[in-house]
Design a protein around this nucleic acid. Structure first.
Lengths: 335, 335
DNA sequence: GTGAAAGCGCTAACAG
DNA sequence: CTGTTAGCGCTTTCAC
């Protein structure tokens, strides 16, 4: 059973392929095709359940109606929520989403972008980049491809981005801890540390200490590798309580670290340190279920996706009326 | 700056487009093209960073190298983990993934499938279907499109599927509860209830009661709508303790319900019922962080993705040596 | 108002 | 071993 195509409809209706194509693309009125003919065409198309071959169409028009989304890890709920929002918005605008995970690997991200662009398989790109500098994206050949950066930003690289106020959120959380009388606040950061989100959060932490005249010590910052969070958390926690026994709060730069930390604190070994106040960037609902009242800031995840898809659609349609650099606020969650 | 194409390479190298195309598609040896020429071509291609236009290629070959993945909700960690695994496997095999969420809506799923197939934009489909019967997928026009069903199965519809042993896992959990001396076990099910996963879990629950000679009462099963889990859980919990005050365990058919239930039990209102044993289908790591020791069965999520992508690749390559109906075992998690 | 025909960039018969 | 050529299914210019 061969796939239905324009030719068949043409014969069926006794009209040319041209005319049918025009009507289907909403250009009927523009070409002055009679209402009657248009209805006839549309009815037949609906009846036969015809839709044009996407590849022939794309080849001809040079438009793919695909948007590529590249994130570190699509199985990370943060990114999958963003992906969902983007997918829904794009679908309503007749775009499809092609999803790829870079695994936080710069070269893999490069391969993915090259693929999408070289094959001309996407009209635009939404990227949570793992790149620390602009050496890749600043290449002139990328200028032609509409790109929105989300979550992470490349410093000093002027691009369209949608991100959240990592510096402010981080500062707010640490200020809050201090206002509660805590003043030996450690920070569990994540490696790789070159990502803008992480740097901003660290800077927010430092700034809060500074404005409150609390001395910052390098040993208060411990780094956890994203690939082995559980092991690193235990190891660093051991170091921390040895080096800084008076620590009274730990601020983790993401919720995975907080979860691992909460797990570690349940162990006999760390029993004496259960009163350490845990706080964390990026809230999760499950903190509501545990007795340890975690302080956190929540990120407006859906809004990141909404803004990113809105922006890319605007850029693609040629009328980018909105501001193209969007920094969304975080919200403090007290427990 | 025009996109590089075969024509340019052809001129550059002084060789025909045909030859270059052959080499690029790994048919150099088959057509007996000299090693020297092949290397020359490949070097130039690498140097100029050329890759063929995906749409021209697809139009010509009739192959898109896209696989469509349709799930209820890509922001659900269960599905996003599956998506990640599938994406990675497919990428290694030069396939891309097009992801869509059906929002648990049968008609939306239909629209998505129609779109993917009618536009001929995918070579194959991986679907966690929201459909309860085969009236849609049994249509002859779908026979030609390689499809793997995951997670949910359409009863009585012979198709390729990868699912887990919902019946067995459910039975195991309830048996375990009973072996611990609990015998007033309620079940919090999820609506819509026509999904095979849910039906199988309910049947497993009933079967376990039956084999242990425990009377099943309809009032022990409470249904929670997937769209308003929190409200429904509280409401149904109230009903339950009123109707069946001797209830000593609740088995929830997914982890979202368990989480909501754990949240509800923290409320003053349900204080007296905190000793009810909570058990749940589909484990989550965060259960480790709470004091209430949740009993659960975990699903081999990655394996679902691995098997699904392996199967679809096998079907696409024409040598489907594997068994095409795969039922993966669950694992009991005691705490 | 409508249709003929060219061509998007690629692959694969077929010819040599 | 290598090149010529037709055509995948669509859109769009141009002609009537």
């Amino acid at each position: 059973m061969r796939k239905l195509q324009l030719e068949d409809l043409s014969k069926q209706l006794g009209l040319s392929k041209t005319l049918i194509s025009m009507v289907l693309n909403g250009k009927g009125n523009h070409y002055g095709i009679s209402k009657k003919t248009q209805t006839k065409v549309l009815d037949e198309v609906a009846k036969l359940n015809y839709s044009p071959n996407k590849f022939a169409k794309s080849l001809r028009t040079g438009k793919s109606n695909f948007i590529g989304l590249i994130v570190a890890d699509i199985s990370n709920p943060f990114y999958s929520k963003i992906a969902k929002t983007i997918e829904q918005t794009l679908f309503h605008n007749k775009y499809n989403l092609m999803v790829c995970s870079s695994d936080e690997d710069e070269s893999r991200e490069r391969v993915l972008v090259e693929m999408m662009i070289n094959q001309q398989s996407v009209d635009g790109l939404i990227v949570a980049t793992a790149h620390a500098d602009d050496s890749f994206y600043a290449q002139p050949r990328f200028a032609a491809v509409p790109t929105i950066f989300i979550d992470r930003v490349i410093p000093l690289f002027s691009a369209n981005y949608v991100t959240i106020d990592n510096f402010g959120g981080s500062m707010e959380i640490v200020n809050h801890l201090i206002s509660k009388g805590l003043n030996h606040i450690a920070c569990f950061a994540i490696t790789p540390m070159h990502l803008s989100t992480i740097l901003d959060r660290i800077n927010g932490y430092k700034k809060a200490l500074e404005t409150n005249n609390i001395e910052f010590k390098t040993e208060l910052i411990k780094s956890i590798h994203f690939d082995q969070i559980e092991q690193d958390v235990e190891k660093q926690l051991r170091h921390l309580i040895k080096e800084q026994p008076e620590v009274d709060a730990i601020f983790t730069l993401n919720n995975h670290i907080a979860v691992a930390l909460l797990g570690a604190l349940r162990k006999k070994e760390f029993e004496k340190y259960r009163q350490i106040k845990i706080s964390c960037f990026d809230d999760i609902e499950l903190f509501n279920l545990i007795d340890n009242p975690v302080l956190s800031v929540s990120q407006p995840i859906e809004e990141i996706g909404q803004n990113a898809s809105r922006l890319i659609l605007e850029v693609l349609s040629g009328n980018n009326k909105s501001k193209l650099n969007i920094v969304l606020p975080t919200k403090l969650v007290e427990r």
